[in-house]
Amino acid sequence: MADKELDCRGLACPNPVLRTKAALEAGGVERITVLVDNAAARENVTRFLQRFGYRVSAMERDGIFSVLGSLADPEACVLAQPEAAGAAEAQQKILVLLATDRLGRGDDALGAKLVVNFLTTLKELGPELWRLLLVNAGVKLAVAGAEVLGVLQELEQSGVKILVCGTCLNHFQLLEQKRVGETTNMLDIVTSMQLADKVISLT
């Protein structure tokens, strides 16, 4: 069993996936780190590794994503089927609406610290955590340089869908800086709240 590292910076899709595939074909790769420099490549490499039985996490620093895959079950090996959909269906769906980049009122510095703590702890909700909606100043948590960016990326990798309000990004002129989640609009936000079993709202 070996660890591998691949530098796919500067490569457009599908090349990072092709390189990753070639690396895995050598066989016996237990852990692999793939460096890419664009969000499309991050998502594709993540999907590819997940599809072939790897647990995946990704980190971003200065526009470079490192996608780390580790073989969830070495026996499963290559060409494992994707996880059966439907297993999660029976659980309730918790949606967290974050309309601020501070938690609570009183002291802004404290509020900023608390929101970091809150998001770091949020994963304790387990698989019932379904979606995270970022609106108004909440979108500032999803942009380059945000302290919780890594935390949010980890949540996203673990399957939590993060929706970031496009109007809000636009308002703060942060459209280009967004580094995690999917840009969305009000109808999707409203629909998500309707579909959720429980909405936790922080404003």
Binding site: P14, V17, A40, T46, R51, F52, D188, T191
Partner: peptide, 24 residues
């Protein structure tokens, strides 16, 4: 689902996101 989505298609998805409804 294997990540075989070309860069152009990703760019399309992001470019269209703002004017779509119901994509979530």
């Amino acid at each position: 689902s294997m990540g075989l989505v070309p860069a152009g298609s990703f760019a399309n998805r992001n470019f269209c996101a703002e004017r779509l409804r119901g994509s979530a």
